[in-house]
Amino acid sequence: MIRVDAAEWRSTIAGFHGSGCTLFGFLTGVDRGDSVEIIGRVAHPESIEAHLISTTIPAGGTLPSLNDLYLGASWHERETGEMFGITFAGLTDARPLLRRAQQGSPPLLKSSVLVARVVREWPGAAEASDDGRRGGNPSRRRQRPAGVPEGFMQDEADGRSAIGGT
């Protein structure tokens, strides 16, 4: 994988495009905490030549769009933009694909708590020693379901400001 600065993202990929890698593979993001890593793949349509290119931008940051070079990049940039909360400057159609406009926080950021996991009672919280009592044995530290951070369980503290989506 080729790692480049955000300033060289477009020029690097444009260089590959110019040398014959006109096939757009995919583009996606990875939440790195304070930053988002963007990874793209372009390939030569008639050879095995292919390149994975990666860059890192601050959370909520901006990257120049590739959709004038590769039409196929539009879909991926729309999706990555709405799922990771970043902007692709120059993207002709940036309408959200799956999310309603401005609803919650971007779902693929790790800080987005899936509200369904908080609202639904986790069946795994039950213990045999609860002896059928709902809410269970208060002396025991409750097990927590995967994907629900501390402080988000029904019987825990209030603060649920990070809940994303619906």
Binding site: R99, Q103, P107, L114, V115, A116, G147, G164, G165, T166
Partner: peptide, 9 residues
């Protein structure tokens, strides 16, 4: 996708 914010349950 029962916990996905974008899927009809």
């Amino acid at each position: 996708y029962w916990d996905a914010p974008t899927v009809t349950k």
